[in-house]
């Protein structure tokens, strides 16, 4: 029996020691950087499109992280790395909540004061859903705005049939900086059948070019809005990620007319993981392609370009509620009735 105890105890010790093998507890900056680099190396999808030499990033920045001591210095170094990649989906958050990434620096140069727009252009019967606004405009025009963070919605719960959209619908994707892939389900109200609306491609291995084939993703149409209904989609630089995807789907699958600026892009889905010491990394884990099998990472172009100056949005718009892009949309729908 003593022999069996001698056998069992080392097993227990080995199993207990395995804990160190499971949890990466090294909180040093160089270990945090190494984990970041390795996860990106194996799982990030846009190295080729972004023209990034990932090995040189390692050799350039490992010495930096060997010497930095503070969270703020690390955030600064990560900011520098992410600026090389130029993907607004990428971000790093420190364990005390500080952020490194392109999104806040590059996407949100301005934001629209939608409350002022609503009052300036006589919006009525405004209904607010989770991440979605629905309103009536004069002359048989209805308005739907998708807000950031939209998840799957039951489109039959939207009281859209109570609205008069006999002259058309405006779908406002401006400042829609993203949401969930399930938010694409919103497009089902404009579709009459089940159909492939875009393709995704994921990593299939750890190599930079190890990708799956194109995986078709479908949406089942709810046939709520008839296909003859005139649709105007408003987009701007802040239309990003899910907003960008919805713009692409509506452009290819409906008679929607896009007005505004080229969208900010963000053609992929993201996920986040913890780095050592409680830091976290968000990265793009799949690529999205439109029906023409072209990447939508670099944005969707409008049919009618209208780009007010940033100063206009920051000054006159805030003073008066004036919105030249919605004026064009209303004007087009009024002339096509």
């Amino acid at each position: 029996m003593k022999l069996s105890i001698k056998t069992i105890i080392p097993i227990i010790v080995i199993l207990t020691a395995c804990t160190d093998d499971i949890i990466n507890n090294d909180a040093s900056p160089s270990n945090i950087f190494r984990s970041f680099w390795e996860i990106m190396d194996e799982r990030y999808v846009f190295f080729e499109e972004k023209g990034v030499n990932w090995d040189s990033i390692y050799f350039d920045y490992q010495p930096v992280f060997d010497t930095v001591r503070s969270n703020s210095a690390m955030i600064k170094a990560f900011d520098s790395i992410l600026s090389h990649i130029n993907d607004k989906h990428l971000s790093i958050v420190s364990n005390d909540g500080h952020y490194a990434g392109m999104f806040l620096n590059d996407t949100l140069h301005y934001s629209i004061s939608f409350g002022k727009v609503y009052s300036t252009y006589d919006f009525s019967n405004l209904q607010t859903y989770s991440h979605l606004h629905l309103a009536q405009l004069p002359e048989g025009i209805s308005y739907i705005r998708i807000l950031p963070g939209l998840k799957k919605i039951n489109v039959n719960d939207l009281n859209i049939r109570q609205y008069d959209y006999s002259n058309g619908l405006i779908i406002d994707l401006r400042d829609c900086t993203g949401g969930y892939m399930s938010g694409y389900n919103f497009c089902s109200i404009f579709l009459q059948d089940e159909r492939v609306v875009f393709y995704k491609q994921t990593k299939a291995g750890k190599g930079h070019n190890d990708f799956s084939g194109l995986i078709p993703l479908k949406i089942k149409g709810e046939n709520i809005i008839k296909k003859e209904t005139p649709l105007i989609v408003l987009i701007n630089r802040n239309t990003y990620s899910m907003g960008n995807g919805i713009a692409s789907i509506l452009k290819e699958n409906t008679n929607a007319f896009l007005i505004g600026e080229t969208t900010g892009g963000g053609g992929g889905s993201v996920m986040s993981v913890l780095l050592p010491a409680g830091w976290s990394l968000t990265f793009t884990q799949s690529k999205h392609y439109n029906l023409a099998r072209k990447l939508i990472e670099n944005g969707i172009n409008p049919d009618i370009e209208n780009i007010p100056l940033i100063d206009f949005w920051k000054e006159e718009h805030l003073d008066t509620g004036k919105d030249p892009q919605i004026e064009i949309a209303i004007s087009i729908l009024q002339t096509t009735k």
Binding site: Y180, M181, Y184, N185, K200, T202, A204, L217, K218, S286
Partner: peptide, 12 residues
């Protein structure tokens, strides 16, 4: 699998 992505727009 490696490309496991549990987010999708359809439930299939």
């Amino acid at each position: 699998e490696f490309q496991y992505t549990p987010t999708s727009i359809d439930n299939s």
